[in-house]
Design a protein around this nucleic acid. Structure first.
Length: 477
DNA sequence: CTAGGGTTAG
């Protein structure tokens, strides 16, 4: 009798694939192409079933069918599954790379798109115009100029610098990365421009705070006979709001009526913002009431506009209505609400909001919220508490926040804290001459001329002659 | 053989 074999010589049990048929009545006839089925797969469960069938029938080696499966799996939102599927494909073509690059570009980790482009180049798969459109989208989410430049060199190398989608991607990626000079260079070198390219460039200026340039460019576009769309106008209206060109905004509103451009949430919000920001409260309200659909941004435009124009009570009224409408307030809403409290001196209301931000609204306080709170504490005379709050912040205090404390101290004559705040400001910004003006004003008002002279000496040591602050002090003494 | 762009609030 032979000795029993050790267990590891035993044959492993055969793996059984339990495949449920797609239909319960009868197995489906072999489809003409799996690709048609792939488009219909909506859930991950359906996808895995089809995937399994494709493996058993060897159709997985058909790149066309496999790419349909891949794009369906990216649409179902399961990037992990898509990536794993991609890795099993021996020779992925450019379409497959593009599909995965696009999926990653819209995900939380757009950096993977760049890695895939590198893979592609190393495997000698030719990237095309679609590849760069998607990769540039990833660059726009990453906002790193260096990445944009690297991709740009490849765009030029592959002769794709004239494709309208690619050019648009470049303009957009450069401008959201804050490099408007490069965006403009690409824009200028492009002889045929689509509306999207114009829009990307205008939006780039508007979002980087160069409203005038945005408006000039819009003017140039209209002068060249290009018809603006609602998307373009939203950016231009934002530029109007930031630069005070309410007349142009008014003109745009009439143009939209004339052309029958639908006033959607975004355009409506941009209009409300423009009116409210410049104190045209009645117009802002009319526009706000006329909107069918509203989102947080719409409410924020209204609340913040009211707050900065001193209509604090109304701003808070809108805030209460917002909560009734089941809209979730965000960090911007709360900045508006807190600043309304500052203007109206509503200490208790603001205090309650600030200390319940995290719990009730799920919003982490930012430096702006702290700024409002310091202002609120300071205005109600609680300068000691304000200083304590600043020192307890998890982030580094900035000039604005110390400035708020300083001005509160001068109002309430707290010299000790004022001097500390001034010192902190000068630590952050040694050229800040305004600090001396504020301090000397404070001393002068209290007839403390000795201290004014002391300041004068300090300024001399700091070599700050011939400054606006200096002349101010001279007049005071 | 298949796919792609631009917009609002501090």
């Amino acid at each position: 009798m032979p000795p029993p074999k050790p267990h590891f010589f035993k044959k492993p049990p055969p793996t059984v694939h339990h495949l449920r048929p797609l239909t319960t009545t009868r197995p489906p006839p072999p489809p003409p192409h799996f690709s048609h089925l792939a488009d219909k797969c909506k859930t991950i469960h359906q996808l895995t079933q089809l995937h399994a069938q494709m493996i058993t029938t060897s159709r997985i080696h058909d790149n066309f069918a496999a790419s349909r499966l891949l794009s369906s799996s990216t649409f179902s939102g399961n990037l992990n599954y898509a990536s794993k599927l991609f890795q099993t494909i021996q020779k992925p073509n450019s379409f497959m790379y593009n599909t995965l690059i696009r999926a990653h570009a819209c995900s939380f980790n757009p950096k993977k798109s760049l890695g895939l482009l590198m893979d592609m180049l190393m495997c000698f798969v030719m990237p095309g115009k679609h590849t760069f459109t998607f990769v540039l989208k990833a660059c726009a989410s990453l906002r790193v100029v260096w990445n944009c430049m690297q991709v740009h060199t490849h765009v030029v190398k592959f002769g794709l610098g004239f494709d309208l989608h690619v050019v648009n991607g470049l303009v957009r990626a450069y401008s959201v990365s804050g490099c408007l000079v490069d965006a403009r260079k690409v824009f200028d070198e492009c002889s045929v421009r689509s509306l999207s390219i114009w829009t990307s460039m205008i939006c780039g200026y508007a979002q980087n705070g160069d409203s005038c340039e945005a408006i000039w460019l819009f003017d140039e576009m209209v002068g060249g006979g290009v018809e603006a769309s609602g998307v373009t106008l939203a950016s231009v209206l934002s530029a109007c709001a930031n630069s005070g060109c309410v007349d142009l905004g008014e003109e745009i509103r009439l143009y939209m009526e004339e052309k029958g451009i639908e006033l959607n949430v975004i355009l409506g919000t941009a209009l409300v913002h423009m009116y409210a920001r410049h104190g045209a409260i009645a117009e802002a309200k009319t526009c706000f009431d006329g909107m069918r659909e509203k989102n947080v941004a719409t409410w924020n435009a209204m609340i913040c506009g009211l707050a900065i124009h001193g209509h604090a009570k109304e701003a808070l009224g809108f805030f209460e209505n917002l909560k009734d409408e089941q809209v979730k307030p965000n960090e911007i809403t709360l900045v508006g609400v807190l600043s309304a409290c500052c203007h109206a001196g509503l200490y208790d209301y603001g205090y309650k909001i600030f200390y319940s931000m995290r719990k009730i609204y799920g919003v982490e306080p930012t430096i702006e919220h702290y700024g409002c709170m310091v202002d609120l504490l300071g205005r109600s005379g609680r300068v000691k508490e304000a200083e304590k709050l600043i020192r307890s912040m998890e982030m580094k205090a900035d000039v604005v926040i110390w400035g708020a404390l300083l001005s509160a101290c001068t109002r309430h004559g707290d010299y000790e804290i004022a001097e500390r705040a001034a010192k902190e400001i000068l630590k952050l910004d040694p050229q800040n001459h305004g600090v001396f003006v504020v301090l000397s004003n404070m001393y002068a008002e209290a007839d403390r001329w000795k201290d004014v002279l002391k300041l004068r000496k300090v300024m001399k040591m700091g070599n700050l002659f011939k400054t606006p602050g200096w002349s101010y002090i001279e007049n005071a003494t």
